[in-house]
Design a protein around this nucleic acid. Sequence first.
DNA 1: GACATTAGTAGCAATATGTGAATAATTCGC
DNA 2: GCGAATTATTCACATATTGCTACTAATGTC
Lengths: 232, 232
Amino acid sequence: MRDRLSPPVARPATRRVTLSVDVILLTSHARRLTLLLTRSPDPRAKERWETPWDTVRVGETLESAAERIARSALGAPPAMIEQVGAVGGKRHPGDAEVSVAFLGLVAAGSLAPTGGDTAWFPVDELPPVPPRHRSLIESALQLLRSRIDQSPIAFRLLPPTFTLSQLQEIYELLLGRRLHKASFRRALHAAWLVEPTDEWRTEGRGRPAQLFRFAPRKRRGGRRGVRFGIAE
Amino acid sequence: MRDRLSPPVARPATRRVTLSVDVILLTSHARRLTLLLTRSPDPRAKERWETPWDTVRVGETLESAAERIARSALGAPPAMIEQVGAVGGKRHPGDAEVSVAFLGLVAAGSLAPTGGDTAWFPVDELPPVPPRHRSLIESALQLLRSRIDQSPIAFRLLPPTFTLSQLQEIYELLLGRRLHKASFRRALHAAWLVEPTDEWRTEGRGRPAQLFRFAPRKRRGGRRGVRFGIAE
DNA sequence: GACATTAGTAGCAATATGTGAATAATTCGC
DNA sequence: GCGAATTATTCACATATTGCTACTAATGTC
């Protein structure tokens, strides 16, 4: 089988392709998911905005390149970074044949002083971006939604301490639907994911809310049955 | 921000890297997950087995390259193929700087007539493989387990018609634990994923089992609450 | 102080899940 | 042919989880 792919001993030189690392940086702002875009440096570019990207430098891994690109665009490292995947086909602003996309999450409130070359856009009101970036953004959002219950994604979109209403708001944002307050809190406490601090926040009107922090505890091995969540 | 990455108008040529596409082919056999490996064509290779891989040819996408490699190794296309992700670092048998891994699922029973250069190994009894392949196999298995309840993975590991005991066996294999028969079936029927055929299979001794086929129906919009499954 | 507003809980009905055991349809040994 | 062994399928019931309405609490506004 392999023989058909390459000669038995001396293998052909692996073909070289142009490769980029592209970073999707997301945060929550004003009850909306927002994405960081940078202005295209090329005035002839078809689209004026694109996600931060660069090539991998010598000695860098894909991850360290993604971290560098994110830090450079934000002025600070994101709270979490995760690979989305690799894609080719579709036009890339630097004409990279293959792009490896990373998703970076930024805590709400730490929106960098968006300089003239970077700006945050609500994900449902994006300006035109290059086709490959459009597709990577879609993939990143899908990843975000599919991992929300397995990974501490929601907590990375919040500052270290937060109110339970803020947390619920993030979940509603990511899931795209309203959640019931009592049920949400009951499930949250049952999961031992947060612990209360002794601080309270007054948000203008209404009763002050207690602040919590993310502090997951080992959970007693609750062996649940299978959940058939297959949509297709 | 972008300015620091590249000059305003004329961008630097995107750096070229050697790239491979590596395919993890899995099936279920004798109550075990098994993986297809090909014999290394290089007698000086440190490891004698590796997962099928090749470079991307001109005009191919990553996906079509993965399909070609899988078809070439199996003699037939896999039932499903999905990207695992991209990795660098760690030694690759062809010294590719970056590898994009794909997971391919093969229906049980269609084990190709494993020629002299390819063979199936139980995933928990693999011979030594190159470090990058070892790592990709781990990632693929993790992906498999994390998607089992969202994607029809289990069904792709089975022939078009199957008994519910076979299906449960696959779930137990992937989840690594026993499931209770009655609960499993109740949840399965509630999810409207299978429909009975009018065939029965006699498996030697015991009562014959009815054969079912995968036939997911649109499910009444069961808006469930949040499940906090975060381990950390 | 009455009211609007947001936070946090109680309690109960409706569902879902865990489990043991009953019932069904075969083959095997004799 | 008959009973034991084996595998499939379902029932029934105890427990656990979830959905929801309504209630209490603590604040700012007027």
